[in-house]
Design a protein around this nucleic acid. Structure first.
Lengths: 211, 211
DNA sequence: AGGATTGGATAGCGATAGTATCCAGCCAAG
DNA sequence: CTTGGCTGGATACTATCGCTATCCAATCCT
């Protein structure tokens, strides 16, 4: 199909598609002449994935780039892909290892992971992500105790077990990989939305009934 | 204290503090002369809150602005504040009511909330937030069924009940409000980080042991 | 033949979140 | 009491991000 058709079917402007190609998010079409190229369904699928990651997941172009690179890398087995994608999602901000607060938080994080017996790589960016939140909480005078974390840990395990259990390994890789990455990012949003709703509900139940 | 001290103690450049004052995130100091103003501990607290919301919560200035406005509004009772803050967090992207996909997703969302018996205002932005994720999933050929959502709903309720239960109502408002808002945003990050870790762990348990 | 469409390249734009500079006015040390 | 280093306040500048717009020459479609 032509780029204009790709544009129509994906809902993205031609210029944006060209931009994504420039940035390496989308492979070029197969050239048929100096000013002509042909695109196929895989381009469309990819574009839809990009759109979902951008619009719903709110990922920066650079992260999407790393994710599609991992998706395209046939050497990565499906079950490693989610981890790979998480590295691309990254901690957002860099850790500051010189800062003693930071180091203390990282030690807390490492201790909690060890305590839980979770198998999380020592250099996983999620450790820094959590440490960052710990630092901020501490600085606001809100220290973290393990019991406070309990419900979050429980919830996280509940969800993760479900998600990893639902991973299909037998489908064709292309599709499975796309599905895995998309669900991971999109269900993150789902979880956030549900938490906020559940909060509103719980608050209504607790406080509105008093009045 | 002087602005330079405020800068030192908050870790933010003087220029940035001035910028925050311009944007209404931080009240001016009390002027003591034409080129002199005095800041106090409340300024520092506010600055630390802003810093946490920006750096960890990754909220745009405009959202922080709305949140601090709600925090400063004494007419808002504490237990309403979290809801108010959520409105400021918003859906990120605007809903597109003309789109039939969107409308269908919104109906799904509304149906689920009704089914659960949750008390969520009809115009809550979280409804759109969830609908947006539904639209994206549907477009990727990944329709949502209630059973898929179960673990997320369960997790959300678990967390929300804990959080709302932990809200203190008796402390002095200033501090309590700051705590409530900060924990809400920061524990969102905590939850995301824990989910990713739990995923890595669950994946390791399921797949690495096969090899 | 000729208007529309492409690929490819380059330039521009609008929003966001700060930085930098300037200018007086002030305060405190010498 | 002067003088050098902060201030507050205003304005201007900058960098990054994620697109858009424009151009051009080569095609294609009719």
């Amino acid at each position: 199909m032509k780029i204009s058709e790709l544009s129509d079917r994906s809902g993205l402007p031609v210029q944006t598609i060209k931009y994504y190609i420039r940035e390496g998010l989308l492979p070029k079409g197969t050239a048929t002449a100096a000013t002509r190229a042909e695109y196929d369904g895989r381009h469309l699928d990819r574009l839809r994935l990009i759109k979902a990651l951008r619009e719903v997941g709110d990922l920066p172009i650079a992260s999407v780039q790393q994710i599609v690179a991992a998706v395209d890398d046939d050497d990565i087995p499906l079950h490693r892909l989610l981890g790979k994608a998480q590295y691309a999602l990254g901690p957002g901000t860099e850790p500051h290892p010189g800062d003693p607060d930071w180091r203390a938080a990282r030690e807390d994080v490492d201790a909690i992971i060890a305590e839980l017996g979770w198998r999380v790589l020592p250099n996983a960016p999620t450790r820094d992500l959590l440490a960052q939140a710990f630092v901020a909480l501490r600085r606001l005078g809100l220290p973290i105790v393990l019991t406070d974390l309990r419900p979050y840990i429980e919830a996280a395990e509940l969800i993760a077990d479900h998600e990893v259990g639902a991973l299909s390994v037998d489908e064709d890789r292309e599709k499975a990989v796309q599905t895995a990455v998309a669900t991971n990012v999109l269900y993150e949003r789902v979880l956030l939305a549900l938490r906020r709703m559940a909060q509103e509900n719980a608050s209504a139940v607790r406080f509105d009934d008093e009045a």
